[in-house]
Amino acid sequence: MKINVSRKSTYITLGAIVLAVAAYFSISQVREAVQVVIGILSVREPQEAIQAFRDYLLGFGYWAPAVSSLLMVFQSVIAPLPAFVVTFTNGLLFGWVWGTVLSWSSAMLGAALCFWIARALGRPVVERLVGGTRALEVSDVFFARYGNRAILISRLLPFVSFDIISYGAGLTPVSFWKFLVATGIGQLPATVIYSYLGQNLTGSVQVLFWVFSITAAIFVLGWTIGPVVVRRIRNGRNCACVPAGEETGAA
């Protein structure tokens, strides 16, 4: 199905990308900040990354929330970077309530940006941003299997890339507002939990992440498969309730 995109949307998206690239190459402070953040978010040990990111944000004083928001949007475009590190850190610095508000709203902005980049510029550009066709296979499978529900289901699974699904949705006919509502609802539980865990940071972050991921996976599995199982059970009961004589057509 062909997706119609206005020239205005394409030009605005291209303009935003050109400005961002120009700022990166022409302003040394921007370039250094991006390199520092990529280095922090690329640290393999989550707890170490969170502490490093916390120290980095504290250096901005009152501007820390704004910097955190910009960095959440930035990592949304650069799909391989882990957003949960930013969410944990926001909970640690600002408390779970304001950390949730900051992380949720910033992630929504990032998701919208990914959606419009894909919608306006198409699959070839997205493949370059996410690292090739294989990276988009997860999105393709989700949308082929679940249709529009793929957005909500994938948002409830923390181990499914938030950014890949945002890009993938932009390559489908789903409307922007349906995408935004499903994203907002689907990402809220994980954002609240990560922010709360960040505020009360104890033990291994990696263990907490996988415990929540497994719990969410079980929930989504039950939500998607459960109705099918119930329907089959009901059909089996209905068949069992039919008298033998009626089944064979006997009088």
Score class of each variant (00 low, 15 high):
S28K: 14
I165H: 08
F212T: 00
N235E: 15
V126L: 02
S154C: 15
L197E: 13
F84Q: 10
L14S: 11
R54I: 00
I164S: 04
Q199M: 14
A107P: 00
I218H: 05
A107T: 02
V192F: 10
V192D: 03
V85A: 08
T224L: 12
L113A: 10
F53C: 02
T133A: 15
L171W: 07
G184T: 04
A16N: 00
L197N: 10
P189Y: 10
L71S: 05
A83V: 10
I38C: 12
L81N: 10
G170R: 01
Q35C: 03
L208M: 14
M1I: 13
L92V: 02
S6F: 05
A240C: 07
S175Y: 07
Y62E: 06
I233W: 11
G198V: 12
W104C: 01
I17T: 10
N235P: 00
A79Q: 07
S68N: 13
I233M: 09
Q206L: 15
N4K: 15
P46D: 04
N4Y: 12
F94D: 00
A217S: 01
A112G: 04
Y56Q: 01
A244R: 10
V141N: 12
T13R: 12
K8V: 13
Q199N: 13
T248M: 11
G147I: 02
A150G: 10
